[in-house]
Design a protein around this nucleic acid. Structure first.
Lengths: 338, 338
DNA sequence: GCTTGACATGCAACCGGTTGCAGAGAATAG
DNA sequence: CTATTCTCTGCAACCGGTTGCATGTCAAGC
């Protein structure tokens, strides 16, 4: 007798029930609430299951309980070195809780992000949006479907984990001022990035407090190329130091300065952000530390708190940063002296 | 009247059916096989769905059809720069086919890999294993559960996409020989890595053919640190050039050589593998190109071929590589001349 | 000895869709 | 005008689990 359509022979709960001589519900309980059954029955069922090679069906369980053992993480760009450690941390945490992780990549495109949220919503318990580029209203709308946690995006009433690079950037400005720099450039990142706004404001505020001139040069998509290309414009400002939106951009800027015959740190100082490159640049990059791994962990933990008690609460989890001084910052050299 | 338990008000097919005045099955067909229905009926149903805000339930659909719109990708280390572009490519392809992507990270641990395969199996149509560290027998065993595609792992009878770094490595050895190098070191990667075996063999074969001495220095986990730490041992061999398992290791080696006062490329030549760092090292790294994006795309495409026609076929998709000469290789300087 | 209650298990409805089959009309053929 | 076919839609079973409720058993309580 042939099976209906050559379906893969995955054993079901009914087959286990038959083999163990009990009802399907008993098999179910043996797996989910064994305390409810006598020890012998549980053992008999488990033995039978083992023998047949039964494995509970995730999909069926999700349908009947409404609980999915899945969560989703959406990021703007997997390939940006800021994210892989974060992704790894989230995946590991999820794994430890027996959850599977969906990954979405938006390529910095809000429309794509919205689409992914919709696609995932049906099969996850909750979602984590890292550096979301979505308008606030849309984020709000999505919370009605599933519990949401944000990373590096500050929306009132939605649990969020923020890496406060402001504190580190302030330190960086102070550090540059103490080295004698009188004018600094901020190379800005994506316009809709919360981190970018935060960093730009921190530069402005700190510079004004210390009486430094400050400029902004845009690099809308953070990348090595964009940083490299920004060098001439940066030099044209007459400033002697720059703080870049992130390490990748800073790395590019280093190359761009070198292209223009400007030596770092002798003639010009550079500070990055996120400390994702470690000490691998030449010279080693002074940067602002980051806690992306901790942010990932915290986000998962927040999400699970939400799943347990649906008391909607307003959590704002802030991680401080600080300056990591390496070799790309040095005493200011007046530009006319070059 | 309160709902049973404050369940999120997700509209179901029944509510749409009621609103449109048709049977549930008609609603279902309006979405899945509209040609079967009259145009007006379809329109009426879609309107009602739109009005109510109905979205088909992925889980329920998967249960009743046995088809999951999900695939899984498992990698050894998300944070290794080889993988993010591949992950991104896979995610994008999947997305275009309206599939969701599960991501697993094994931390190079076969046990973890096995666990993840099991966890995913229940809710995916198929899986892609990149650089699997699993014993061949286990990989075989898994194929009975779900269609599987391998990347950079060569197992007979299982569809696989291979980046043939052998060809590029051979070119690298020839390039070094033509520059006058008489001894070269291979810095090896993970023991269970297919790519590592392939590269090691290619170095050995090419070196022997050209009459060069060759040595192997291990760096079991490929990383910047491991590469840097390997420098003294590399120098001790007396060779004047090294080919590293990957770019990250090569990058570390560059730093390690610098630590030891050895100038590249004047005193020593270095070649990487995978071209993941672009030209961002100082000096820019000579390396073997890679096609991780194409590999990701090809893997997804293979997987979908398998899902469509279950004719199990033996596909071996090989991507050639070649040498990319940049600035870390130069004419050999006899070591005694230092 | 009869009541009460705790414990273990079975029954059957339900989660939200899909799909084979059957029947009602309408259209076409003879 | 009747027989046949074709279109469209409804009925009901099914996917593989979970869970509230009912039932039966057995021991403790009075």
């Amino acid at each position: 007798m042939k099976s209906k359509h050559e379906r893969k022979a995955t054993p079901t709960i009914s087959q286990v029930a038959a083999a163990a001589g009990v009802d399907r519900s008993t098999v179910s309980r043996a797996f989910t609430r064994p305390a409810m059954l006598s020890a012998e029955t549980v053992q008999r069922v488990l033995d039978a299951a083992e023998r047949i090679g039964y494995v509970p069906n995730h999909t069926a369980r999700a349908l009947s309980t409404g609980r999915h053992g899945n969560i989703a993480l959406i990021v703007p760009d997997v390939a940006n070195p800021f994210f892989p450690p974060l992704i790894r941390a989230v995946q590991r945490e999820a794994d430890q809780l027996d959850f599977c992780l969906f990954l979405g990549n938006t390529d910095e495109d809000p429309y794509q992000e919205d689409k992914l949220v919709g696609r995932f919503a049906g099969q996850v318990a909750g979602m984590i949006l890292a550096s979301s580029r979505l308008p606030e209203a849309q984020i709000r709308a999505h919370t009605s479907k599933r519990p949401l946690v944000l990373i590096n995006r500050d929306v009132n009433g939605i649990p969020r984990v923020l890496i406060d690079s402001g504190s580190g950037v302030e330190e960086a400005v102070a550090h540059l001022a103490s080295l004698g720099h009188r004018g600094i450039v901020y190379i800005s990142g994506p316009a809709s990035s919360w981190s970018n706004r935060q960093r730009r404001n921190a530069v402005r505020k700190a510079a004004e407090k210390l009486g430094l001139k400050h400029f902004t040069v845009p690099a809308p998509i953070p990348s090595y190329q964009a940083g490299r290309a920004a060098a001439p414009q940066v030099l044209r400002t007459g400033a002697t130091a720059a703080i870049a939106f992130d390490d990748v951009t800073a790395h590019g800027l280093l190359a761009g300065l070198s292209d223009n015959g400007v030596a770092v740190p002798r003639d010009f100082s550079v500070v990055g952000c996120d400390d994702v490159l470690g000490a691998v640049t030449q010279p080693a990059l002074t940067t602002v530390s980051n806690w992306s791994v901790e942010a990932g962990r915290a986000a998962v933990s927040l999400l699970f708190d939400m799943l347990q008690s649906s008391a909607i609460r307003d959590v704002r989890y802030v991680l401080e940063t600080h300056l990591v001084v390496r070799d790309t910052t040095g005493a200011a050299t007046p530009r006319q002296a070059l």
